[in-house]
Simulated assay, not measured.
Amino acid sequence: MQKVIIADDRPTWMREEDTKMICFTRCSLYKKCSSRFGVDCKRLGGDMIPKVGVGHGKQGKAKTQAKKGVKEASKGNQK
């Protein structure tokens, strides 16, 4: 019997993208997760526990600041 070695010669960004796609396609909490471990995630059968919750999602700084600005403006109008 011969041993076959499969080498993954792709760039690192492609391998990282594959990991994120596993999360994107198979996990319903993808938008709220900040870990995105891929196959290593506890929800997908791995060992690592993901950080999931409100405020943990990966959003840009501008979007987060815009949300805070809207909340602060609405508080000022209520007084």
Score class of each variant (00 low, 15 high):
5 I>S: 02
22 I>H: 01
16 E>S: 04
43 R>P: 04
38 G>Q: 04
6 I>N: 05
11 P>N: 08
52 V>I: 15
60 G>I: 04
39 V>N: 06
45 G>E: 02
28 S>L: 04
1 M>R: 08
63 K>M: 15
19 T>W: 01
68 K>C: 11
47 D>F: 09
68 K>L: 15
57 G>M: 04
43 R>N: 13
7 A>G: 09
14 M>T: 07
30 Y>T: 12
55 G>C: 05
21 M>E: 15
33 C>L: 03
54 V>L: 11
76 G>I: 11
40 D>C: 09
2 Q>E: 12
38 G>K: 00
32 K>T: 08
66 A>E: 11
28 S>K: 07
7 A>P: 05
37 F>N: 11
8 D>T: 01
31 K>V: 10
33 C>I: 05
74 S>K: 06
18 D>K: 04
29 L>N: 14
77 N>E: 13
42 K>S: 13
76 G>R: 09
57 G>N: 03
19 T>A: 06
42 K>I: 14
55 G>W: 02
34 S>I: 02
42 K>G: 04
31 K>W: 09
73 A>K: 10
65 Q>D: 14
27 C>V: 09
65 Q>H: 06
19 T>C: 08
64 T>A: 15
1 M>I: 15
58 K>C: 11
63 K>P: 07
60 G>D: 10
24 F>S: 13
58 K>Y: 08
16 E>D: 10
5 I>K: 02
26 R>F: 03
75 K>T: 07
69 G>D: 13
33 C>W: 00
48 M>Q: 10
46 G>N: 06
53 G>N: 06
45 G>F: 02
46 G>R: 05
22 I>A: 04
74 S>L: 15
44 L>C: 05
36 R>A: 10
52 V>S: 03
39 V>F: 06
39 V>M: 09
32 K>M: 12
32 K>D: 14
64 T>L: 15
4 V>Q: 02
72 E>W: 01
62 A>R: 09
65 Q>K: 09
4 V>F: 00
37 F>I: 09
10 R>D: 15
12 T>K: 06
75 K>D: 11
